[in-house]
Design a binder for these strands. Structure first.
Length: 136
DNA sequence: GTTCTAACA
DNA sequence: TGTTAGTA
């Protein structure tokens, strides 16, 4: 698993990331403010992005083009990273179920659908694409 | 020349 | 989101 550290190595400045992602510096910085990405910083406070950061930005870009807002992208992204087990996203007891609001139930439903798809096809952008319609 | 933050004729 | 100002 040493490939992971390579993908997370902070390598390129914002200028290169702009060309790699076709995003403006403004957008990249804006997404960072909204915690969609967390690039490293040099001593001089300049951002340094890793391959993972670039991949993440490409995903964000795809979702933006699908018409999602920051809030929607956050949710889609959060369901990716934490490879939550089914038990964690399943409503366990009746008591617990009663405490959930309608909004929570929808959120839970989306997570479960996402997990099933991820289990069958393994991870992929297509899954996000399908799921994105829930966040319009 | 590049990047950063803050702000808006 | 664009863009500009003043820096580092």
């Amino acid at each position: 698993m040493s490939d992971d550290i390579r993908r997370n190595m902070a390598l390129f400045p914002i200028g290169i990331v702009m060309k790699l992602t076709d995003l403006t510096a403004r957008q990249i910085r804006y997404y960072e403010q909204n915690e969609l990405i967390q690039p490293a910083r040099t001593e001089g406070k300049q951002r340094l992005f890793s391959f993972n950061d670039v991949d993440r930005l490409l995903e964000i870009k795809a979702l933006i083009e699908k018409g999602l807002n920051i809030a929607g992208i956050k949710q889609v992204l959060q369901m990716q990273e934490p490879a939550v087990a089914p038990s964690e996203i399943t409503v366990t007891s009746e008591a617990k179920r009663k405490e959930l609001s309608e909004k929570d139930l929808h959120q839970l439903l989306k997570q479960q659908i996402m997990y099933r798809n991820a289990s069958r096809y393994g991870e992929d952008a297509l899954i996000r694409g399908e799921l994105s319609r829930f966040f319009h």
